[in-house]
Design a protein around this nucleic acid. Structure first.
Lengths: 223, 223
DNA sequence: AGGATAGGCGTACGGCGTAAGTGTGTCAAC
DNA sequence: GTTGACACACTTACGCCGTACGCCTATCCT
């Protein structure tokens, strides 16, 4: 290999690791996963990569640009399933699980999606979407229906993971967390509370996915 | 230093509107709806109600407390449908639309749910949940299934509105927004792009809701 | 009248994103 | 080797943010 192409790091030891856009987005993602979106500040990222805050701006337009790059980066690591030549519904189900796994691995990304336009999308980041649409169309849906179903299932996945990670209805501990006088005023909440609280997340996800795929099967049968 | 401390409207006797927790949460919600979550700062809210920032803390523990109060307040204005004595599925569909309408009216609340634990929930804020569970159980679902279905449909609604307001996949303008070379590398995205871009939001929501209710019907028929 | 109290106000601190300007290590051409 | 250019890290500074702490005063009870 051409060791003489550049001798910047050869002479001055390994002390000068060149700061790159990738190193920055990596640090941002790591930080985000570890300590949540609030912990992600330019100053903090800079400290993480051993640099002053303003130096980041040599590689990133602004914080928005950086966060979009993080989304992009996460999309690119989408864990595609191995087998493709399956029943398209089965494959679609697998894809859905991949989506869920990816989002669960980086929960803050969901918040990013919620706040951001994410206008610039690369080809790589759209590949998972293409795979999902492909499965839906192979299952027999029209282009229009495939688009709708994709949107629907995507919304469900996003919503599920959001509820899993943010527990909007405080299912954290148990039914006892609900306010008093609940049984008389909210009989149904009281009755279902154990199930809402127990909340086997995997089973919950499966239930919802089944619901939609079942509905999809019905739709295909008709058309 | 004239020592003449700002003698404001104290002279105008009845003009002293007492600052209350409610006035604060109202202002916060109004601001949030009008200018987004980022615009909601303690200083800004204070200015909005004609007061200095620190005065808010006489009525609110901290910003987190305030935002939880805003969520609570939104929940309490849940627009229940008039008729109740319907086919439970029909009623459930109506409830789903109410949820959607409420969230669309206050899009920032979704972000709040995404970031927050929302541990303390009042009876009032749980009433919509009770209504939904009631409909599901009247439709013939077990307590467990009702809880799961509630979670599923809720996730879908949250996810849908999140996608509507944040358009994660940049459906803003048209298919032309997608990166170049898309047709060859992502044939399915290219084919479905028009439908993803057009995106009649109401029809989209109806499609997803139908999918799930159809799946629900199948599940009831079986059990 | 006098004292207590509730609640609004001012100041201050550390952190934020980032505009603008400064300094320095590296390399190409001489 | 010297020089000049350039990339890129650093410094400083501004106006935001949430909020701890203490002061000040209008109001009410006695």
């Amino acid at each position: 290999m051409g060791r003489t192409t550049t001798r910047r790091s050869a002479d001055t030891k390994a002390a000068r690791v060149p700061l790159t856009r990738e190193r920055i987005t990596d640090a941002a993602l790591r930080l985000m996963d570890a300590e949540g979106l609030d912990a992600v500040s330019m100053r903090r990222i800079a400290r993480e990569v051993g640099v002053e805050a303003m130096s980041l701006y040599n590689h990133v337009r602004d914080k928005d640009d950086l966060l979009n790059a993080v989304i992009e980066r996460v999309m690119q690591e989408f864990p595609f399933p191995d087998a493709v030549d399956d029943d398209p519904i089965v494959y679609g189900r697998r894809l859905a699980h991949c989506w869920r796994d990816l989002l669960r691995a980086h929960p803050s990304v969901i918040q990013l999606f919620g706040e951001r336009k994410h206008s610039g999308a690369s080809v790589d980041s759209l590949r998972p979407m293409d795979a999902a649409l492909s499965a839906l169309r192979r299952a027999g849906l029209s282009e229009s229906d495939a688009a709708q179903a994709f949107h629907t299932i995507g919304s469900f996945i996003f919503g599920t993971v959001m509820m899993e990670t943010g527990q909007p209805f405080g299912s954290g501990e148990q039914a006892g967390a609900f306010p008093t006088g609940i049984a008389s005023e909210l009989p149904n909440v009281a009755a279902c509370a154990p199930y809402l609280a127990e909340c086997d997340l995997d089973a919950q996800f499966e239930f919802g996915l089944d619901l939609m795929l079942e509905g999809l099967r019905a739709k295909i049968g008709v058309s």
